[in-house]
Simulated scan of single mutants.
Amino acid sequence: MSTQTAASVLDVLVVGAGPTGLMLAGDLAAAGVRVVVLDRADEPVRTPKGNGVVGRAVLELRRRGLLRGTGLRVLRPPRFRFGPLTLALGLLHGPLHVLPVPQHRLESLLAQRAARLGATLRRGHEVTGFEQDDDGVTVRATADGSPVELRARYLVGCDGARSFVRKSLGIGFPGVTSPDISRLARVTIPAGAAARVGDHIELPGIGRLVPFRPNRTAHGSITIAPADALDRSAPHDLYIVSTHEPRGDSDPTDELGDEELRASLRRVLGAELPYTTAFAARSVVANSRHAERYREGRVLLAGDAAHIFSAGGSAINAGLLDAVALGRTLATVLRGAAGQTALDDYESQRRAAARRTLALTRLQVALEAGDETGEALREVLGELLRNRATARRIATLIEG
């Protein structure tokens, strides 16, 4: 078994090389903290996931120089989707910052920064257990079939919604599971089969669909977006599509068959979507959950390990802001400028922020409901949002 001497004990061990873990590692390394990130995957995952960052985390990325020379642009949109409604924010000094960027590219930028600042990323390392005492945490992992043991003063679980770290601590993850299912894919629609007309996408035999927002039908909804609107290097005929409909007996899967994808599109649209190829097709059931606590002694949680949201656009922002707050607090504690009780401040601050984000995302889900309650919510809130000050206030809350 590989072990460490007392002199080589790490300051912080981070589990999970997603955006939250990599941001945290970079910030800690910048503060002179000895940090190692463990991730069970041998290579970075390139399966399309998030399409951008929305909120104050965009400013944190820019402040760290992560966007310099990348060609990525920060937007302050005059309009922004809130569930099925639109926030009209005005053309000048919009309160919301948006960074269109594929998640795999964001992770690459964060990993490069963390390594440049002195953090170590060990891929192919799956954590299998840990124990903590008054001085630190001993972590067991496997790599290439061999056991590895590491010792750190603190352990942070940034290992996603199914967090091994959170489960090992016995921390509950209460919340709500949606009765609906979403099927998502990248599809190629030939130029002659789709036309971008103003702010609509025209599909013969189907009609006009508004991009980047749910288009409601009698049997659910469909969202469609040109991939090159989010990634300028994407082919012009590539689209991101997702359907949303009652779950029934369906279970979510990371590998969705073409027949099931086409059947879902047909049910929702009442017609065939004229795509030729599809890839990265999967299905998900939305969850809205919040960890009962973010800290157990010297072990902490951040990102999806601590909270997951039922509406898109919030998870990466919340996770990156967790990393900013925790990185600052851990560095202060490790320097001896504050005691361990300062870590309670991280938990109270970020739990409050997550509660607000949960409320905002749950409201968006409620607005999507096809029943009379959803209709009433859309009618009343839609009227309130015609007031620009109200729309900008909601956007400020989303900003975080």
Rank of each mutant, 00 (worst) to 15 (best):
L117Y: 01
R350N: 10
R232D: 14
L66K: 05
L320E: 11
L59A: 14
L360N: 05
R64S: 07
Q132W: 01
L72I: 09
R356T: 15
G257A: 11
H219Q: 14
Y239A: 06
R81E: 09
S233Q: 14
R282L: 14
G400Q: 07
R81N: 11
A119P: 02
R213E: 10
L334W: 00
G18F: 01
S163H: 06
P84W: 00
A111M: 10
G313I: 00
A234F: 04
E255H: 13
G69C: 10
Q349F: 12
R151A: 06
R76V: 13
R68S: 12
R355K: 08
I181D: 04
R140G: 04
R267G: 02
Q112L: 11
G157T: 05
A291N: 07
T276V: 12
G319I: 01
P48A: 12
I240W: 08
A305L: 09
P211A: 10
V54P: 00
H97P: 00
L269I: 15
P95G: 13
N287S: 12
G205H: 06
A25D: 03
G16E: 07
I394K: 00
L109G: 03
I398F: 01
L75W: 11
E131Y: 08
S348G: 03
A359G: 12
A25F: 00
L38V: 12
S314V: 15
T329M: 03
D258H: 12
P214K: 07
A302N: 07
R40M: 14
E368I: 13
N215Y: 03
D344L: 15
L169E: 04
T357N: 03
L99D: 02
D228G: 04
R62L: 14
M23P: 02
N287W: 06
T177N: 02
T86G: 03
G118T: 09
F279R: 13
L66N: 05
L320H: 03
R151P: 04
V197F: 06
A354V: 14
V33A: 07
F164K: 02
A57G: 05
F279N: 12
Y275H: 15
R298T: 12
A315V: 05
N317Q: 10
F80G: 02
G313Q: 01
L117D: 06
P226A: 10
L75K: 06
A225I: 03
L169Y: 02
A376H: 11
T373R: 11
P19I: 06
C158M: 07
R183Q: 11
H307I: 13
L320N: 04
V45K: 09
V35A: 09
A318F: 01
L75Y: 08
F279S: 09
V35W: 00
F82M: 06
V299Y: 02
G248Q: 07
H219R: 15
E202Y: 07
